[in-house]
Design a protein around this nucleic acid. Sequence first.
DNA 1: TGACTACTATGACCGCTGTCATAGTGAGCG
DNA 2: CGCTCACTATGACAGCGGTCATAGTAGTCA
Lengths: 198, 198
Amino acid sequence: MAQSERGPRERMVFSAAQLIRREGVAATGMREVAAHAGAPRGSLQHYFPGGKEQLVNEAVGWAGRYAGNRVARFLAALDEPTPGGLFAEMVRQWTDEYEAAGFAGGCPVAAATVDCAESTESTREAAAAAFATWTGPVARALTDMGVPGERSGPLATLMISALEGAILIARAERDVRALTTVVRELVPVLDAAAVKAD
Amino acid sequence: MAQSERGPRERMVFSAAQLIRREGVAATGMREVAAHAGAPRGSLQHYFPGGKEQLVNEAVGWAGRYAGNRVARFLAALDEPTPGGLFAEMVRQWTDEYEAAGFAGGCPVAAATVDCAESTESTREAAAAAFATWTGPVARALTDMGVPGERSGPLATLMISALEGAILIARAERDVRALTTVVRELVPVLDAAAVKAD
DNA sequence: TGACTACTATGACCGCTGTCATAGTGAGCG
DNA sequence: CGCTCACTATGACAGCGGTCATAGTAGTCA
């Protein structure tokens, strides 16, 4: 996850996502990103001539791709894949992090949405795209598990909505309670949506 | 909702919440709050000697109380109150606003959580308290509608999580789709949790 | 009248931020 | 050697942010 042997450009995007996760977009400085990435300050204007806006947008895109790619890995971890099982894995990534490392970070896409949706159109679009590249794999996985095609998309949206909201509440409360709650309540609902093919 | 005949102090708290909703905490300036409230700049240090931190915390508290109080009003608007009906009303407040006035604003409590959870402990606590004063009335309403006591709290958390997440997605996409989706998917689930007392 | 209090009015300060300008390094290569 | 190109290094700048200091006004109470 924290591969430090990437190019400096990639490291800066990654660091930006990390810092945005913790402090939000506005409170994350360019110099701070460079320092966190162990990259020279001069590289910022070289790799990101579009300035902070470009860097933030790429960080958001990175986060969306990361979340989308995780879906396949979650599925692989389940010996009997079900919609509820997938959701539980998605949430577990967060409970694990919070219990192991504290409640420092939230979802960078959420942070970008809150801070930039109204002020920076391109970042808003990047956030929407990130949600899409996250929802897509989830919906496809649901279909593969036997969820009727027309319900996969809506259920994927429900899963991600509940997860994002629970992340917010968990960070505010410094307690994973909200995360475990949405899992407990939603898992049976999700599993019931899969066509019984036993 | 936008009573301009309050004291200047109250107007500033209200304005702070409005601006935080749109731009986030970090991007909201003190001078901007005063201007938006039509209040003199000098009043800031008089009414809020604790500075921005105090103002933000009060705005978050105000938002929590506002959300909590709305619950009773939503219930009154339903001639046959059901859990799903309450949730639909809660979400409808947002779809109505977005369709009428655009996607400018999100939830101020979410914004405070994203921007301050890690940096400003007191604001994090204020956000947690706001979520609590919102969840409380919802859970009580569920119990009154026949939801078993031990499930009211979890279901209230689920409702608010899904709503908060859907608000994020809706703002990013500039589309109420996510909001209408969570309503459609969750209403039957919520109604099924109420004990049939016909 | 004379405090005393509540509130308003400004101007200044300092720190920080994103961005730009300019110059420097150093490898690759002909 | 000299040229090019990718990258690095700094310093400056202009703007804005929250906060403080100081002074002013207005109403009230004794």
